[in-house]
Amino acid sequence: MSDHVYFSQFLHAVWHGESGHPLVASLLAQPAFAVYRNTIFKGCVDALSANYPAVLRLVGEPWFQGAALAYARRHMPDDACLIAYGDGFPDFLDSVDAARELPYLPGVARLDRCWSESHLAADDAPLDTAGLHAALAAGRDVCLAPQAAARWHWEPAYPSYSIWDANRRPGVELPSELGWHGEGALLTRPEGQVQWQRIGHGACRFLDACRAGMGVAEAAGFALEGEPGLDVAAMLGSLVQAGAFTSFH
């Protein structure tokens, strides 16, 4: 058996607890192999617990561990370092029947994921704000490039940002009357620390447009389609101040 076939069969045995190959099946039959499998899955569950702290706090450890183990059994890590493990966990929660009583939970998970991605992203140079102001004042329709660490998410139906924020920061409490409506969030990493703030639908659409390479004028129109009456100048100023962009051209 070639090394490739052996390791493929070995990984299949680890993740599925079965193997049709005699050599790997003999390993699988040993009690120590079960310990080995459990150790691997525990590492995956622990990584998900660390990467999705707001979800964990909302649902409690027993529920979370059950969901995390079910996810791990279906999704093998693609890196021995598990710091970024679980990119598909929010979509997985969408399919979990037990999560349907908490319809905002996948949105909260997506914001946990945004935090991890922002934290792990490469460093980018800060935006030349004076140069941008001069270009806009001169009437140039520039294209803005989002920072590598900038992440944003719009949740159309649920106040996932408010719920996430209250479960991510110590001392933050949910309003006594939480509006059941969509919310957006922007996460950036100025000076090496992930920060976040609430943003509207128009701002999220504007950032989507910038990421797609649209110029400011077209991006502004795209934002206004999603949020009529938006003060585009104020919105752009807020995004620039938050450190959402790295350059323009």
Rank of each mutant, 00 (worst) to 15 (best):
G139F: 07
E18T: 09
W15T: 05
L239K: 02
E155S: 11
L58A: 06
A72C: 08
A72H: 00
T129E: 04
P156R: 09
Q241F: 03
A149K: 01
L48S: 09
S247L: 03
L144R: 00
L56W: 05
G88R: 14
Y52T: 04
L28W: 11
R189F: 03
H181E: 12
A25C: 00
Y158I: 03
M76N: 01
A212I: 11
R211I: 02
L105Y: 12
D208P: 07
D124W: 00
L58W: 06
E61Y: 00
R73Q: 11
T188F: 08
L111H: 02
A68V: 07
E155Y: 07
R140W: 04
G86C: 14
V194S: 06
S116C: 13
P170K: 02
R151E: 12
S176T: 11
F7R: 15
D123W: 03
A145V: 12
V35Y: 07
A134T: 08
P228L: 06
A145W: 00
I83E: 14
L174C: 00
L136N: 09
P22W: 11
K42T: 15
F64R: 02
P159G: 04
A220H: 05
A203W: 03
G192F: 05
E117N: 05
G202S: 10
L58T: 00
G43V: 07
G200L: 03
L93D: 10
A134W: 04
P31C: 11
L187M: 09
T129M: 06
S162V: 04
W164G: 09
P146T: 08
E173Y: 04
I199S: 08
R57F: 01
R205P: 04
M76A: 14
V45A: 13
V194Y: 06
E225C: 10
F64Q: 02
C81W: 14
Y6H: 14
A84G: 12
A54S: 15
M235Y: 10
P53D: 11
G215F: 01
R168D: 09
R169S: 09
A98E: 14
H119M: 07
P53S: 06
Q193M: 11
H75I: 11
W196G: 08
L187F: 11
W196N: 03
H133F: 08
H201A: 13
A80M: 01
G139R: 12
F64S: 04
G221E: 15
D231Q: 14
I40T: 12
V194C: 10
Y36I: 10
P190H: 10
Y104S: 00
C204F: 07
F41V: 09
